[in-house]
Write a protein that binds this DNA or RNA. Sequence first.
DNA 1: TCACATAATGAAAGATATTTTCGCGGCGTG
DNA 2: CACGCCGCGAAAATATCTTTCATTATGTGA
Lengths: 304, 304
Amino acid sequence: MKESFASDAPPAPAALAAKVRTLAPSMTRSMQRVAEAVAGDPAGCAALTVTGLAELTGTSEATVVRTARLLGYPGYRDLRLALAGLAAQQQSGRAPAVTADIAVDDPIADVVAKLAYDEQQTLADTAAGLDTVQLGAAVAALAGARRVDVYGVGASGLVAQDLAQKLLRIGQVAHAHSDPHLAITNAVTLRGGDVAVAITHSGGTGDVIEPLRVAFEHGATTIAITGRPDGPVSQYADHILTTSIARESELRPAAMSSRTSQLLVVDCLFVGVAQRSYETAAPALSASYEALAHRHSPRGRGGR
Amino acid sequence: MKESFASDAPPAPAALAAKVRTLAPSMTRSMQRVAEAVAGDPAGCAALTVTGLAELTGTSEATVVRTARLLGYPGYRDLRLALAGLAAQQQSGRAPAVTADIAVDDPIADVVAKLAYDEQQTLADTAAGLDTVQLGAAVAALAGARRVDVYGVGASGLVAQDLAQKLLRIGQVAHAHSDPHLAITNAVTLRGGDVAVAITHSGGTGDVIEPLRVAFEHGATTIAITGRPDGPVSQYADHILTTSIARESELRPAAMSSRTSQLLVVDCLFVGVAQRSYETAAPALSASYEALAHRHSPRGRGGR
DNA sequence: TCACATAATGAAAGATATTTTCGCGGCGTG
DNA sequence: CACGCCGCGAAAATATCTTTCATTATGTGA
């Protein structure tokens, strides 16, 4: 089905430079010029046609083809393909320059690469650091909850809303509070069988801890999602889910990676709960999808 | 010298899989078949001629060329080159495409691993597919804006709030709207020099498009963050930032990966703007940090 | 349900790129 | 000095890619 790797002529994938050096002595002058160009700038040559490369090297098409043959390819077309591959490899090889911090004068492309890399790292860290036992317990509590309250302020407030939104979509009674007073007012009405979730990166946000404490004292099951499992919030948490703490810099506030981390935890909770209550969750998900369908224009093709 | 980041269509080297997913919805059936083959087996397809690929997919040469064009390449020849590059990268990059779907009976540990992997993938795709020219233009517009309005409903509403929060922290006048009526009411007061941002995964959310249209017609600079750059929202967008579209399943609604993707874009915008207005942004960031410090109890270790 | 308009598709003509052919001219050798 | 071999490139031959256009599917409104 694929190119059979015959015994004597396997087209070289990346060992091209070596092959050029090996074969150079047995090449004629013109062919050497071609080989040199190819080895020197694979990416550039890959963009050229036979004629283009011939002109660049001051030779003819025939010579280019002959060189390609000598290098072990059936023709120039295949050499070109290999060249493109080589270029791509080199390109990706010099990628890990993105580990540095984001600087004020970084070009926009670097910013994208660095942010993406950092967030990927954060996700990996979070996944590695998550206690699946705690997570399982939290899921169980949520799945069986009569009612769920989620507390978060500032950046964590959005995560809290995200969790509440998700739970609502699978038929749970969930509410996110970012107003501390209202949160406490509501927490007072929680009882056993209810669940309260506090989300705070620092683990010490009073506006979030207070409602959780009240919920805890009223017998609700409490969950803390925090980057500081040793922080004050843990006093009142039955289950603690730890988010990762990434280094931050002036241009990259902690809110960014903590949010990424928190959201992963929230997603895990959501999927876990959805699994546990699949019978009711699946229809609810489809229903909410259906209900929203008409609010999006049905066709995407004509949108000039 | 070589890499010519042309204005609007820089042929994607590694962002191909992402591009296929992004553009798939706007493709016809035959083209989808071709795109699928290409995304599924880059190495294999790179070895085929137009005719070969047409036969393999049961279509015609014309369709193959059309697909290549849609993916952003001048013709099939160039797509093939990119394919060879992609294949080489995968070969060396050790791509463990363990993209198994999340099942109802997956243990919780698997859920964590799969979600983390999927979100990492989403980040990589988004970063690869982001048009840095558009991003740069969007950043420039935001940095010079007198006032910024952000529109988003549902899951995208939280992203909108996130962007507004971030911009506020560096001294910009930003506001997020999730109420369509209020959004339009506010959009009417926008003028040239103001910026409106619409966030919609589907690209067709009327509640978000309407405010953007009003802002557009009143002379504001408009930015769309969407997974469907060919969708209706783009009609009224001066700058379009494309988020990635990941496959979704019953247990993994689209909202999850689209949110991850959107947040990365928002972060890029934020950092870009912060860079541009570093003189004022840095003090503002520190100030907001200081102002919140006393709301976190100092317990734990270093406190932050 | 049918007629109509519109878009999607493939066959084949047309344009490019690649490969092959062929002969010229340099260079060493008898 | 003449001969013959080898490297080399121009141009013909072939393969590949692109465009055009007629046909066939698809959806829409009466």
